[in-house]
């Protein structure tokens, strides 16, 4: 299984790092040298040949292979064991309705979120609790970063080149969470989307902005959901003819809000059915259009710690949320 990428020679690590910056290979943070041995080890872990095709970005003359992903995963600081998740996420972002050409080039600068479900989450220690969106967790940090480096280095999403984000966002360094399936009263996201509980999946989603829906006054499911509806209507849910009825908004709910639904026995579907007609009421001043086509477009994810009575509403860019299976190793 011959590696195809061109090779570069450097005097030492410092020389490599300076050249990596000069050549535009990094996100601004230091990177790990993708030596042929290490890249080969990452591919061997998957049991995947270097040239295996993961997808295309036709408008950019780009083909993405397993080797591309392995090189960038090494650079991001991943362990080889993270590769199945990184590959699944890249496959997800290469699905047509993930619309990577738009989401990685747009002036709005959406961030590329990964939500990991299933057993691999605990195997890899992907954080889904306290500090879920923040730094400090190797798997979250490096898996999300690996995907962003693939978008940058392989898919040409380079700021100032095809990435035209007016402001961009720190979420574009890395944006990977797990769902807190253990503390959740609900079916996990991947089970709602047709997978088995024992399957591992990655759901990818382009987030244009986040609204932190704080409500520490409500003590009922209805009261909390009314707040979520209000905040969602302010930020809106974008869409267009091409995306049709399958656009999504994701609500990441932490422990303080979640417990009211657990106590009252509300399912995610009941929550959706309660919110959807209220979200679809005619637009009022100060609100944005809601292009959801059906209640199932609202995806509810359990994550985050105790403390703040918030739910994070993740508004979409012009793309669907796509769920891909994490494939088992092939050997």
């Amino acid at each position: 299984m011959t590696l195809h990428a061109p090779r570069h020679q450097f005097q030492d690590y410092d020389d490599f790092l300076e050249q990596a910056y000069a050549k535009g290979w990094t996100d601004g943070m230091p990177v790990v040298p993708p030596t042929p041995d290490k890249v080969q080890r990452f591919l061997d872990y998957l049991g995947m040949p270097p040239g295996e095709l993961l997808g295309h970005v036709p408008t950019r003359e780009v083909t993405v292979t397993a080797e591309h992903v392995a090189v960038n995963a090494v650079m991001a600081g991943c362990r080889a064991e993270y590769m199945p998740v990184v590959v699944a996420a890249v496959r997800g972002f290469l699905e047509e309705k993930s619309h990577i050409h738009s989401t990685s080039g747009s002036l709005m600068g959406p961030a590329h979120l990964l939500i990991v479900n299933g057993p691999i989450r605990t195997e890899l220690e992907i954080n889904c609790k306290l500090g879920v969106f923040g730094p400090g967790f190797r798997a979250n940090a490096t898996i999300g970063r690996a995907v962003r480096l693939v978008i940058r280095n392989v898919m040409r999403g380079i700021p100032g080149f095809l990435d035209r984000a007016t402001y961009s966002t720190p979420s574009r360094y890395s944006y990977c969470i797990g769902e807190n399936e253990e503390d959740s009263p609900w079916k996990p996201l991947h089970v709602e989307r047709g997978f088995l509980p024992q399957d591992s999946t990655v759901t990818v989603f382009a987030v244009s902005e986040t609204t932190i829906a704080g409500d520490d006054a409500s003590r009922t499911p209805e009261g909390i959901l009314d707040s979520l509806v209000m905040y969602t209507r302010r930020g809106g849910v974008t869409g267009d003819k091409w995306l049709g009825d399958n656009v999504n908004v994701i609500m990441v709910m932490g422990m303080e809000h979640m417990r009211y639904f657990a106590e009252a026995g509300w399912s995610k579907q009941q929550m959706r059915d309660y919110m959807y007609p209220k979200l679809k009421e005619p637009i009022r001043p100060g609100e944005m259009p809601i292009r959801l086509g059906k209640p199932e477009g609202i995806l509810i994810v359990a994550a985050g710690g105790h403390g703040m009575a918030d739910t994070h509403i993740l508004h979409p860019h012009l793309a669907w949320a796509i769920t891909k299976p994490v494939e088992p190793r092939r050997r």
């Binding site: 490599f16 993708p34 030596t35 042929p36």
Partner: peptide
């Protein structure tokens, strides 16, 4: 021989 060889990360 004192050199670090890496693979190109771009397409």
């Amino acid at each position: 021989h004192g050199a670090l060889v890496t693979l190109d990360p771009t397409s």
